[in-house]
Design a protein around this nucleic acid. Structure first.
Length: 707
RNA sequence: GGACUCAUAGCUCAGUUGGUUAGAGCGUUCGAUUCACAUUCGAGAGGUCACAGGUUCGAAUCCUGUUGGGUCCACCA
C-alpha cells in the first residue's frame, strides 16, 4: 500500500499537482483522447467569465456543473469538449475601471480614448490571468488550447462582419429615437440593461390653455409640442386638430391637439402633454402624428439653452423651480402623490433619461424576423430548457421584444464598423466618405457594440465560425449551462445569432442554475459582508468539498444556500473515500483479481445493489438531475459501502478460509474501484489521487477511464 | 398590472413518471471507540408535507381556490 494513505486526506497536498497532470495529459482536448472515445462529440461552451475581477461563488457553481457534465460524457467515451473563454464585458468592465479611476482622482472624460482603452486592456489582461488560475482551481476540465477572449483580433473581425451582413440584410438600421440614457455613465443602454424601480413622485396638474394636463415632469414643458387626448373623449372633441396657445414661465407657446387611442380617458384628466424628445411614449406618438421633437435636456441631465433662465440646472432643481414659477402664475391646479415605475441604470440606479440619439438597432420583432425564428426553434423543441418553465419565460420575451439598441458610447468594446452623418443621422456599413442623403462628410462611428452583440455569437466565435474545422465538428453544441439571470440578456441573443448565421440552433439544451445565497438563504452582497470567496473555501476544505457543497441539493432554476458546515461535511467525505481505500488496500495483500471468486448469495446481492446504483446515477445524470446523482453517489459510498459492506466483510477478511477471504476482497475491490468512477465527475481530485495510487494503476488516469 | 416560483424536521434544503413506516446535511439527546477513519461509529428525539376543497384504490406529488414569502417582466402621462 502506498504510504500516502497513512495520514488523513489533505486536499491541498494533491489538487494542484493533479490538475497539472490532467493538463499535461492533453485529454482536456478531445483531439487527444484515446481511440475508445469514439462517441459524440459532446460540447459545452463555457459562459466566459468577465475578466475584470476574481471568481465568486456563482462562477464556482457553473464551473462545477459544467465540469460534471463534461467529465461524465468523457468517461462515457464521448469526444468531450468544453471551451473556456474570457469576456471583456464592455460596459461592466468600463464601470469597474471607472471606479478605479475615481479612487485615483482621475476621470475617463478627461482621458484620450486610446489611452483609456489601452489602460483598460492592460487591466483586463491581468485580471484574465487571475480568472483563469481560479477556474483551474475549481477543477475545470476544459480545453485551454481552445480558449478565446472576446477581443481576440479574429473575433473582432468576425463580429464586425456579422454587423455588415446584418446591415446588408436590413436587420440593423440607424435609428434616431429616444434611447435609455444613463447620465452618470454617459452611454445609452438596451432595454435589458435597465431596471424598473418603483418610486413615489408628485403628479402635477398643470393648466394648459383650456386643458389641465397631469405630468410628473413639469420641467419638460419647454419641449412640449402637442396635447394628446383620446378620440372618444367627448370633453375634448371640440379641440382636436386645433392649435392652441398655452402659457409657461418662458412665455406663450402654440401646441397642437392630437387624438390618439393610446390616451387613457380615465387617467389624470385624460389630456396628456407630448414631449417627444424626453419620453418614449411621447416619441412614439410624435412619430405617428408627424410632430417635431424639441430637446430641452442635455446629455448630463441638465436643462439646455432653450429653457431660458432654467438653462444649466439639473433636472431635480429645475423641476422645483418650474413648479414654483407655475404656482406663482396660478397654473398649478393640484399636486398628488403618485406611485409609478421608472427605469434606472442597472449598475448605478440613476434614473434613465430618455434621450433622442441616432443609434444602431437590431430589428428584432418584424414578422418572420429574428425573434420569431428564435421563438419557433423553442416551440418546435429544437431547444429544451431545464427547468422547463423557462421555456415559457423565453417565449414570452421573444414575443414581446423591441428593437435592440447595440450602440454604446464607451471605448471599451468592439468598434462598430460604420460611417455616420452628423447632419442627417444617416449611417452605413459601406466604406464611403460622403453622405448620399445630404452630401455632408461622413465620419467613422466612435461607438462600440453592446457586449451582448459579441457574446451573443459566442458559440459560433469560439468554434471559429464560419470556416474552422471546430465549427464543422462541434456545432451545434449540446448544452448551454448558465445562470437564470441570463435568460433575457444572453440566451435569446445566442439563439438569434445562431439561427441567423447558420440556420441551426446553437445548443440543444439550456440548463439554468440559480443564485448562491448565504446559509440563511439571503442574497450575498458586499454590503452585508456575507460574500463567500470560493478560493478561500478551497484553501480551507479542498475543491472537491466545495464542489459537492455547491451541487448537492442544488436543483436547476432554484437558488441554493451555501454554508461552510456543509463544505466541512463533504471535506469529511473526501477523507472517508481516502480511509475506505486505505482499509481495502490494507486487506488486499496478495489479492489476485484474475481468479474467479466464490461469491456468496450476500456477495451477489451486494454487487447487484452496486450495479443498480451505477445505473441509477447514470440515469440521473442523463436527465441532468445532477443534484440527486451527487447525493446518491455520496450516500451510497458512505452509508452503504463504508458503513455496511465494509463492516460486514471485516471478519471474512481475517478468515482462515482463503476462498472466503478472496471473495470478500473481490467484492470490496470491485465496489471501491467502481465507486471511484461514479464519484469522479463530482469529486475529481480525491478520486483521481486515490485511483492513481491503487496497485496496478501506474500511469492510468481515472479521468479517461470507462464509465 | 402580467408572469414565474416557493411553502416539507430547530436551520438550510432534497423528495426523479402519484405507490408501503416522508429523507439528507447541520444542530440536538444517549451511548461506543486500542478496529481504515474523532474529518469516526451505533441508537434516538424531532414533521396534521401552509390552508381549504377536488380527482384517484392511493396525493407532499395532479387540479381549483385562499394565505403568505421570493423573483422577473411592464412606456397609464
Amino acid at each position: 500500500m502506498n504510504e500516502i494513505f497513512n495520514k488523513p486526506y489533505e486536499a491541498k497536498e494533491f489538487e494542484q499537482d493533479i490538475y497539472r497532470q490532467w493538463e499535461e495529459s492533453g485529454y482536456f482536448n478531445p483531439d487527444n483522447l484515446p481511440s475508445r472515445h469514439d462517441k459524440g462529440p459532446f460540447t459545452i461552451i463555457m459562459p466566459p467569465p468577465n475578466a475584470n475581477g476574481h471568481l465568486h461563488a456563482g462562477h464556482a457553481v457553473f464551473i462545477t456543473l459544467e465540469d460534471i457534465m463534461t467529465r461524465y460524457k468523457r468517461m462515457q467515451g464521448y469526444r468531450a469538449l468544453w471551451v473556456p473563454g474570457a469576456d471583456h464585458a464592455g460596459f461592466e468592465t468600463q464601470i469597474v475601471y471607472e471606479k478605479k479611476l475615481e479612487k485615483e482622482g482621475r476621470s475617463r472624460f478627461k482621458m484620450d480614448p486610446k489611452e483609456l482603452y489601452d489602460e483598460i486592456m492592460a487591466f483586463t489582461l491581468e485580471n484574465k490571468k487571475y480568472m483563469e488560475e481560479e477556474v483551474k482551481r475549481v477543477g475545470a476540465s476544459c480545453d485551454w488550447s481552445r480558449e478565446r477572449f472576446t477581443l481576440d483580433p479574429d473575433i473582432v473581425v468576425e463580429v464586425q462582419k456579422t454587423f455588415k451582413k446584418m446591415f446588408d440584410d436590413k436587420l440593423v438600421y440607424r435609428g434616431s429615437r429616444t434611447v435609455n440614457w444613463c447620465t452618470k455613465h454617459q452611454t445609452s443602454l438596451s432595454d435589458v440593461e435597465t431596471e424598473s424601480v418603483e418610486k413615489i413622485d408628485k403628479l402635477y396638474y398643470i393648466k394648459y390653455g383650456p386643458f389641465v394636463v397631469a405630468t410628473v415632469r413639469p420641467e419638460t414643458i419647454f419641449g412640449d409640442v402637442a396635447i394628446a387626448v383620446n378620440p372618444n373623449d367627448e370633453r375634448y372633441a371640440q379641440y382636436i386638430g386645433q392649435e392652441i396657445e398655452i402659457e409657461n414661465p418662458n412665455g406663450k407657446l402654440m401646441v397642437k391637439v392630437i387624438a390618439d387611442e393610446a390616451v387613457d380617458i380615465e387617467f389624470g384628466t385624460g389630456a396628456l402633454k407630448i414631449t417627444p424628445a424626453h419620453d418614449n411614449n411621447d416619441f412614439a406618438m410624435s412619430q405617428k402624428h408627424g410632430l417635431p421633437a424639441v430637446v430641452v435636456i442635455d446629455q448630463f441631465g441638465k436643462l439646455n439653452e432653450r429653457t431660458g433662465k432654467y438653462a444649466g440646472m439639473k433636472i431635480a432643481e429645475a423641476r422645483t423651480k418650474v413648479v414654483e414659477d407655475l404656482e406663482a402664475m396660478g397654473l398649478i391646479e393640484k399636486i398628488e402623490e403618485y406611485k409609478h415605475v421608472v427605469p434606472t441604470c442597472y449598475k448605478c440606479g440613476t434614473t434613465i433619461e430618455p434621450r433622442l440619439l441616432p443609434q444602431w438597432f437590431v430589428k428584432m420583432s418584424a414578422q418572420g424576423g429574428l425573434a420569431e425564428k428564435a421563438a419557433k426553434a423553442v416551440e418546435d423543441g429544437r431547444i429544451e430548457f431545464i427547468p422547463d418553465n423557462y421555456r415559457k419565460i423565453f417565449l414570452y420575451w421573444m414575443n414581446n421584444t423591441i428593437d435592440w439598441n447595440i450602440s454604446r458610447q464607451i471605448v471599451w468594446g468592439i468598434p462598430i464598423p460604420a460611417k455616420v452623418c452628423d447632419d442627417c443621422n444617416f449611417g452605413t456599413a459601406e466604406d464611403i466618405d460622403i453622405c448620399p442623403k445630404c452630401g455632408s462628410q461622413l465620419r467613422k462611428d466612435t461607438d462600440t457594440f453592446d457586449t451582448w452583440f459579441s457574446s451573443g455569437q459566442w458559440p459560433l466565435l469560439t468554434l471559429n465560425y464560419p470556416d474552422g474545422k471546430d465549427f464543422k465538428q462541434f456545432y451545434p453544441t449540446d448544452v448551454m449551462e448558465t445562470g437564470y439571470d441570463l435568460i433575457f440578456k444572453w440566451i435569446p441573443r445566442m439563439v438569434i445569432f445562431g439561427l441567423y448565421l447558420t440556420g441551426e440552433v446553437p445548443f440543444k439544451t439550456v440548463y439554468l442554475h440559480g443564485l448562491v445565497n448565504d446559509e440563511k438563504g439571503k442574497k450575498m452582497s458586499k454590503s452585508k459582508g456575507n460574500v463567500v470567496n470560493p478560493i478561500d473555501i478551497i484553501e480551507k476544505f479542498g475543491t472537491d468539498a466545495l464542489r459537492m457543497a455547491l451541487v448537492v441539493g442544488n436543483t436547476p432554476g432554484n437558488d441554493t444556500s451555501f454554508s461552510e458546515s456543509k463544505v466541512k461535511g463533504y471535506r469529511n467525505f473526501a477523507n472517508k473515500i481516502w480511509q475506505a481505500t486505505r482499509f481495502v488496500l490494507m486487506n488486499s495483500e496478495g489479492f489476485d483479481d484474475t481468479r474467479e471468486p466464490q461469491l456468496t448469495e450476500r456477495d451477489k446481492e451486494v454487487l447487484k445493489e452496486f450495479s443498480d446504483m451505477k445505473e441509477n446515477i447514470t440515469n440521473l445524470l442523463d436527465k441532468f438531475m445532477i443534484h440527486l446523482a451527487a447525493e446518491n453517489a455520496y450516500h451510497y459510498f458512505w452509508h452503504t459501502f463504508a458503513d455496511v459492506i465494509i463492516e460486514e466483510n471485516k471478519e471474512r477478511l481475517k478468515s482462515e478460509n482463503e476462498s472466503d477471504r478472496h471473495a470478500a476482497q473481490h467484492v470490496l475491490n470491485t465496489i471501491l474501484r467502481g465507486s471511484l468512477k461514479f464519484l469522479h465527475p463530482f469529486m475529481p481530485f480525491v478520486t483521481e489521487t486515490v485511483y492513481d495510487n491503487l496497485p496496478g494503476n501506474d500511469g492510468k488516469m481515472l479521468m479517461i477511464e470507462e464509465w
